[in-house]
Simulated assay, not measured.
Amino acid sequence: MPNRIGSVGRRIAYYRSVARPKMTQQQLADAACVALGTIRKIERGERGVTDDTLDTIAAALGVDPSRLIADREHVASRIRDALPNLSAAIASYDVPDDGPVRPLPELRAAVAQATAWRLAAQYLQIARTVPNLLAELARAAQAPEGAGNPELAELLVTAYRCADSVAYKYGARDLSARLIELMRWAVLGADDPLLSAAVSYVRTETFFAARAHAPGLRALEQALDACPAPVGRPAIAARGALHMRAAVIAGRAGRDDAADEHLAEARALGDHVPEGIYQGTAFGPDSVRIHEVSVAVSLGDGHVQRAFDVAREWAPPRDLPAERRSGFYIELARAQLWGGLMDDAFESLKVARRIAPQHTREHPWVREDAATLRRLKRADAETLSNFAEWCHAD
């Protein structure tokens, strides 16, 4: 235990020193609402740190909590342990327990924070906070003053999406499907066709999980038919995101023509808006480039040159969401593996891990590719074995 305590303190001190701008111990204490003396003792390895305190320090530093502890399995266990609370919260979506309800601006800020965690692939923070947030939003919607409020419906949809990101990434596919159905139910109260398009984007997860690619493509094409005309940035982004998603699932359905058509539409729409977050989804020229790699991988190993062409000239900028950037390198690694570029594939997996460790560790392709690399012994044996053990590769 003393070694573990010391290693946590050293990591906190390191991330505090490399923060931009650099943080003093007092600034970290203030940001994390922790006593200065406590921060000093933790960094010196003189006292342990509870999970809650670790999470607040990580949030203050702007890093994933898993970066501060040596036992990465501990983070995954905490997320999985929280899934029953998430199930309980949605089981009572229409009959919530009594409790406090914050004013609407505070609820809006809490949902925005959860969305920021989702985009940053910080699933532990979502797992810890969203179950209570969903219950509170349900109480707000059931209250007389909240009934029929479209903004509350929008906040519920957005919070369900955050919860779904944890369920889907951590393999709780039935829970994920239930959350998506609740999104489809709640969005009716928002009366916002652009938000409905975002829900259709997320719903594609259920088709990916079931390998029902042809029905998934049909569902997205129906969503495109219902999507408002691309007038104004939000509407352009909504259509563009649906085309990106349709291109990928068309590739997995073996529909090369449809994949290319949807990707071309996404590219044309992406040229008309700046990269940004629209209805909770990243869209713009950079996101389209990432999906060019996704489509190449979806079409199979005969199309890897398309992925290499993108990666040769471009890399995701740091201001893109961490989840999307790590996904780029995970898919690039698969293309490199198919192309016989074993060392490059391992480097891409390591970059994905640095960007978003929680996302990378739970991705099934990462486990498959790490297992293949280890079996072929095409990288440093010890380093590769450590990586494979980290992501539980067979």
Score class of each variant (00 low, 15 high):
125 Q>K: 12
268 A>H: 10
174 D>V: 09
4 R>C: 07
259 A>G: 02
137 L>R: 04
352 A>V: 01
108 R>M: 06
214 A>Q: 13
363 H>D: 14
256 D>T: 14
316 P>C: 01
167 A>E: 10
80 R>V: 11
392 H>N: 15
23 M>Q: 15
65 P>M: 07
249 I>F: 00
159 A>Y: 00
178 R>S: 15
129 T>H: 12
386 N>H: 10
363 H>W: 08
231 V>G: 10
271 D>N: 12
369 D>T: 13
27 Q>K: 10
29 A>F: 02
215 P>N: 03
245 R>T: 09
182 L>R: 14
21 P>K: 11
348 S>Q: 03
300 G>S: 06
208 F>V: 08
97 D>V: 10
352 A>M: 01
169 K>C: 09
48 G>H: 03
149 N>L: 11
252 R>I: 04
140 A>F: 05
214 A>N: 04
7 S>E: 13
280 G>S: 03
103 P>S: 11
357 P>V: 02
35 A>W: 12
359 H>N: 08
315 A>T: 12
85 N>L: 13
338 W>P: 05
252 R>L: 15
121 A>S: 13
239 R>D: 00
82 A>M: 07
108 R>T: 14
206 T>G: 00
380 D>A: 00
179 L>F: 01
199 V>L: 13
102 R>N: 10
358 Q>I: 03
322 A>C: 11
55 D>R: 14
290 I>G: 00
47 R>T: 14
120 A>E: 15
188 L>D: 14
236 I>A: 02
248 V>Q: 15
5 I>K: 11
266 A>F: 06
165 S>L: 00
77 S>I: 10
121 A>G: 07
